[in-house]
């Protein structure tokens, strides 16, 4: 029983990274139609930025949780303005290739500057150690990660459902052309939405910094799992990204515990089952036959 609780918390913590990053991937895909391959690299940059800021400026994790996503927001908006926007009128494949190339570039730049061995990150003492829950010692940091992820997901959900911006994003996600023909300047939202999605990947990276090895390559496996998450949840679905993220985290944790050799495979088995049963994903909408 205690083991189950431990693996659940561990799975939800891992799922938190997936959920946050997948949320960013989903809004970007929804509004721009871009499958952002560089999302794993943005996640890595978030973690690296947190480590570098701690090392050079002594910026704590608390500060990094605010500062790094803001930096990533600006960085994402720059990437969209300088690169992504030029390929938007073309086949989506071009932006997939562009962001794939960007990934290689970012990874190599980080390797060149910070090496391959990984950067150290000491978690704040308040978040170290374990807390006793029902006779089981659970890592405080994992609970913290889950809490932050749930708060941010709730915040994004409120933003999407309770504000005019959210309404416009939902409409533009569903039918961009129609939203435009109803007087919405969809193009105006493209850059901030891309930046916002990148900021979420950066936030996931900051949260991962004290928890995972911070290397230039840390985003490479991450992005593959992330694609599985959005396929399971439903491409472009906000709720699907979050549920898919936590679900994949749980599958991974229990897989590693009970069938370590199959842990990674299990995620893709889950993906295959979902796609067979519901081709559009758990929360995806079937394309209307027009």
């Amino acid at each position: 029983m205690s083991a189950v609780l431990q693996y659940t918390v561990q799975g939800l913590a891992a799922g938190s990274f997936y959920a946050l990053a997948a949320l960013g991937l989903a809004v970007i895909f929804g509004v721009l139609g871009v499958v952002n391959f560089a999302h794993g690299a943005f996640y890595m940059l978030g973690a690296v930025a947190a480590a570098v800021l701690l090392d050079t400026l002594g910026l704590s994790l608390w500060g990094a949780l605010i500062v790094v996503p803001l930096l990533m927001l600006v960085f994402g908006m720059l990437v969209e303005r300088l690169l992504v926007q030029w390929l938007l009128p073309l086949d989506p494949l071009y932006n997939l290739l562009l962001t794939f190339g960007l990934t290689l570039l970012l990874v190599d730049l980080v390797k060149r500057r910070y090496g391959v061995s990984g950067l150290p990150y000491e978690r704040p003492s308040a978040l170290s150690g374990r807390v006793e829950v029902g006779g089981v010692g659970l890592p405080v940091y994992q609970l913290f990660v889950i809490g932050v992820a749930l708060l941010v997901c709730l915040g994004v959900w409120l933003l999407m459902t309770r504000t005019r911006v959210g309404m416009i994003v939902r409409a533009a996600t569903e039918r961009p052309e129609l939203a435009g023909a109803l007087g919405i300047n969809v193009g105006r939202w493209v850059t901030p939405v891309f930046g916002f999605g990148v900021a979420l990947a950066g936030l996931a990276g900051v949260l991962a910094a004290p928890f995972r090895a911070i290397t230039a390559e840390m985003g490479s496996d991450f992005i593959i799992i992330l694609f599985a998450v959005v396929v399971i949840g439903g491409l472009g679905s906000i709720v699907g990204a979050v549920v898919g993220g936590f679900l994949v985290g749980l599958v991974e944790a229990f897989g590693q515990a009970y069938a370590p050799t199959f842990a990674q495979v299990l995620i893709f088995v889950l993906m295959a089952v979902v796609v067979l049963a519901r081709p559009a994903g758990l929360f995806g909408r079937e394309e209307a036959t027009a």
Binding site: R170, E174, A179, G183, I184
Partner: peptide
């Protein structure tokens, strides 16, 4: 829009 309520559909266009 399926993702918008009836009222949101009405309020969407400026």
């Amino acid at each position: 829009f399926a993702n918008l309520s009836v009222e949101e559909n009405l309020l969407l266009p400026p």
